[in-house]
């Protein structure tokens, strides 16, 4: 029997990068060993380095380079203009779409196009998953706070034909707000934010008054400061028959991370050793607590 071989996916860029930075990044990624690339702005509709047309063009280029492309949609939809963009993405007619809000699920189900349930959709049990599969969900990503044990229970009852994806590397999206925390830090009103999130391509680190970093502010999104890294759990992920492993982009070093996961999957590198090497280079450390059913920011000692 051959070993279950998950695919590698690159999540959407969660930060605000300049057009050049985005295009350079995806130029590099078009040659990286990832099978799936999620594209699009999911955090703030004011960010405009690339417009919808630009994203679609980029999608076509990456698709031509052999990547499965999925268009990711916004997590927090409020304005009518945001719904207009959402409709345009849902009606693109070529690429599948990742829903990050139930409004997107409605539009996609209506069109009978298979879709992906992103981190913005709460699937905590197999009943919910089965219901959404009935509406056309072909893949779901587990909420980052789910433990390995809960995931195993869902996997045991997973509807046929639905792929399971796990967030295996990156700063975890933990919360969304109406307030822009980047603008608040700069003492600017949200309506005149001056796009200051461009200054911090990996977000702004938030620490306790004792200097313990634990969150990263990314506009209206709050992330973990620690990088969730599950590379050392590769054997467990395989055993659970997880189909897709998601790596969330950071401004630096994403290519190295992808290479480490790819080498682990090919059996060329010991995953625990490789995880340890990646974690040693992280300024705020790694975490895997959620996976082990603990507070998310904790980290298993063996991979430090």
């Amino acid at each position: 029997m051959t070993m279950h071989q998950p695919k590698l996916a690159l999540g959407p860029v969660l930060y605000y990068w300049s057009k050049n930075q985005l295009l350079d990044f995806y130029q590099e990624m078009s040659g990286a060993p990832v099978d799936i690339i999620y594209l699009g702005e999911t955090v703030c509709s004011k960010r405009h380095s690339l417009n919808t047309g630009d994203w679609l063009e980029l999608a076509a280029r990456l698709n031509a380079a052999g990547k499965e492309v999925v268009l990711s949609t916004m997590a927090l939809l409020e304005a009518e203009s945001e719904l207009l963009t959402l409709r345009r993405l849902c009606e693109n007619g070529r690429f599948s779409v990742e829903a990050n809000d139930m409004g997107a699920v409605r539009l996609l189900a209506e069109r009978n196009t298979p879709f992906v349930l992103g981190t913005g959709i709460n699937v905590y049990n197999d009943h919910t998953l089965r219901f959404l599969a009935g509406l056309g969900a072909k893949r779901w990503i587990a909420p980052v706070e789910l433990s390995q044990q809960t995931l195993a229970s869902i996997q045991a009852e997973r509807p046929v034909g639905v792929e399971t994806e796990v967030f295996v590397y990156g700063r975890m999206p933990l919360a969304y707000s109406a307030r822009c925390f980047t603008a608040r830090y700069h003492d600017l009103p949200k309506d005149d934010c001056q796009y200051r999130c461009l200054d911090d391509p990996d977000g702004l680190i938030l620490s306790t008054r004792e200097g313990q970093a634990f969150l990263a502010l990314n506009g209206i999104q709050t992330q973990s400061a620690q990088i969730c890294n599950l590379l050392h759990e590769l054997a467990a992920l395989r055993e659970l028959r997880v189909d897709v492993l998601r790596i969330s982009p950071q401004a630096e070093g994403t290519g190295v991370v992808i290479a480490a996961f790819a080498a682990g999957l090919r059996g060329e590198r010991d995953p625990v050793e490789a995880a340890r090497a990646l974690n040693a280079a992280l300024p705020y450390g790694a975490c895997d607590g959620y996976w082990r059913g603990q507070p998310g920011l904790r980290q298993a000692a063996e991979v430090g």
Partner: peptide
């Protein structure tokens, strides 16, 4: 709640 309810995991990140 400053965060969108149903979409905030800050508490479990720190306390489980």
């Amino acid at each position: 709640c400053i965060m969108v309810e149903g979409r905030c995991l800050l508490s479990s990140y720190v306390t489980g």
